[in-house]
Design a binder for these strands. Structure first.
Lengths: 237, 237
DNA sequence: CGCGTACTTGAGCCGTTTCAAGTACGGTGG
DNA sequence: CCACCGTACTTGAAACGGCTCAAGTACGCG
């Protein structure tokens, strides 16, 4: 995915009325304005940490362009990726609203354009604006469902082939990638491993096996799903 | 834990002002009344299914007494327990609010007293009542944090000893059980296995090992943590 | 050209799962 | 009261699968 340059970033309308089903989708101009009033736009490079788990919430982050990975780390340094967030998503919401420490770490995968609002300002606004609080409910539900899905993947797929196949199909579904069109994985094998609960080497091996069995084709960060039915069979097994 | 008999169930004040930090904790009499108006009390025996994943949401369930387990099941019948809910918690909220199918199954562990409200009634009420929508936000945050914690357990603890030790300590913390006081586990080994992502036999073996090493003592469903520091060491390793 | 990062592949180990056999306990019906 | 049955728990032995360690390759970038 090409990095949007600064010009594109600032030319794009801030919040169009018909955006993706993200946090501010279908929001009224009034509510939009009040959120803009308490927030500011920030630009981050790739691999920047927006916030880290255990920190006291500074505020909420509305991802406007770019993607970020949400991770948790154990005491020994092992990491899990809970999910990958995209444009329109509000990050750090659960922690900010409840004023508990961030439960996860948010790190950009690409250069990102973000709207930041301080905790107190945001909480006040939400308490006063029923429309916004419904948006908060929607976003929290999204995060909750995503976490549930991750529990599913981690606990209910024992085999490595199953985990990796499920991951590939999920990724294709998220990008609405049709058959015969390659998709780009902006993740290293290490990161895929963290997303599905395997070691880095096992991810490499499993992807190699898929390639040799002609289920997928790989070229750099691009992956083409050649035999979707076969992959789907692996997820069911 | 003794099963509350029918008399107790109905004598207990419906919603006291100072209840546990559950869904209706600290709620105003007005909001309480409006929720009561759209809901009805139901009694369930142990092992009753309140709702099952993939079902279209009928409504929300406020657990007033008793405990329930929230599970997900794979195609092959393997199950994970996401969490155990107790009095004061609202079940099925995420699905009802977003009108998506229930993401999990809720099953009572004991006889339970539940307040049920239909999806449409509840959604209307939430949309009209800002105070209630804040309560919804709180409950969704709780569920989200719980799911995150489960991801942690499943992905970041590799060893069986670590998983089981963490589970025991968590359970003790939830019940606010002090040292030297036995706690009751209303779960079979099978269910513990589903909660931490292990096989039933491994749970038995691990608990046996703990007992032989004098870390815990067991008598039927009661467990006493004899050496908490040692258990904590196991979770850190 | 050289370095760092990511990927690849092999070999052996380790822990959990699986399968199997058996025990303990509580409830039911004779 | 006891025999019977179902459910849960216990324990052993073997197999499997992914992890770890190790060595080496490919690629992009200064």
């Amino acid at each position: 995915m090409p990095v949007p340059d600064s010009f594109e970033l600032h030319q794009k309308p801030l919040f169009g009325p018909c955006r993706e089903p993200g946090f501010l989708g279908d929001i009224s101009p009034r509510a939009l304005k009040s959120f803009e009033a308490i927030s500011q736009v920030c630009l981050y490079p790739a691999a920047a940490v927006l916030f880290a788990e255990t920190q006291t919430p500074r505020g909420v982050y509305l991802l406007d362009s770019g993607r970020a990975k949400m991770t948790m780390t154990s005491a020994e340094g092992k990491a899990v990726i809970l999910r990958i967030t995209g444009p329109g998503e509000m990050l750090g919401l659960g922690a900010a609203i409840t004023e508990k420490p961030y439960e996860i770490t948010a790190e950009t995968l690409e250069p990102c354009r973000v709207r930041f609002a301080k905790t107190v300002d945001f909480c006040c606004l939400v308490r006063k604006d029923p429309e916004l609080s419904l948006k908060v409910i929607e976003q929290l539900s999204r995060e909750y469902f995503a976490a549930c899905k991750q529990v599913r993947t981690l606990a209910l797929s024992r085999r490595a082939t199953e985990k990796v196949a499920r991951f590939l199909l999920d990724w294709a579904a998220r990008g609405r990638v049709a058959n015969q069109i390659p998709m780009t994985l902006p993740l290293t094998h290490e990161e895929i491993a963290q997303a599905v609960g395997l070691s880095r080497e096992t991810v490499t091996r499993t992807l190699s096996a898929f390639r040799h069995r002609k289920l997928i084709a790989m070229a750099g960060p691009d992956i083409l799903i050649c035999n979707r039915p076969a992959l789907e069979t692996l997820t069911a097994a």
